[in-house]
Amino acid sequence: MSEAREAILGSIRTALKRGPLSQPERQQLESQIATPPHHTRPHFGDDLARRFAAKLESRAATVVAVSRMADASGAVVDYLDRLGLPKAVAAAPALENLEWPQGLAVRFGRAETSDQVSVTPCFAGVAETGSLVLLSGPSSPTTLNFVPENHVVIVRAARIVRHFEDAWDLLRKEAGGIPRTVNVISGPSRTADVEQTIQLGAHGPRRLHVVVVNG
């Protein structure tokens, strides 16, 4: 297929009326990639946590706040009780160190079709649109984000950033290169493909529950 590659690149260069870029030109573009230009970002007030929750709720997600990480699993049990769901969840291995209450069956690993509820951590929250940024990895399977009907996400308030660009910056600094999958999730699954009528739970989770940990 290298023939096609050369043909396409050649055709692009013919259209642009030039040959391949020179080394200095390429370096110039590389350095622009290394320090992305600052584009316009939506302006809004400073209460990021409030905006984050309000935006999520506007798209039919539910949000609760707890004061410390140890209370997060309690919030999960409350959620199960409220919906009358069995006391069993599939959780990301990253949450193995959380104090899980007695009487709650927790299986760590990827999602199975029989799982009704998943619990996952979250890399960052984005206040701009009320979005969750989840990274794939050995301790955070992607299937948990899409297969079960109920998805519970635990996010630290301190990890709520203002704009998407701030989340990308964290990613560049902390994650050591981009993970296989970055899932930005902003509510439960929805469709409007039948007569523009919004219906939740098209293919992914019907419900998205966000536990914000303030401590």
Binding site: G109, A111, S136, G137, P138, T143, P179, T181, S186, S189
Partner: peptide, 17 residues
């Protein structure tokens, strides 16, 4: 609702993908 950034196949240790 979903914006997904995909960068390659399953990595070592990934339980899915």
């Amino acid at each position: 609702t979903y914006t997904t950034v995909s960068s390659g196949p399953r990595r070592p240790g990934d339980p899915d993908g």
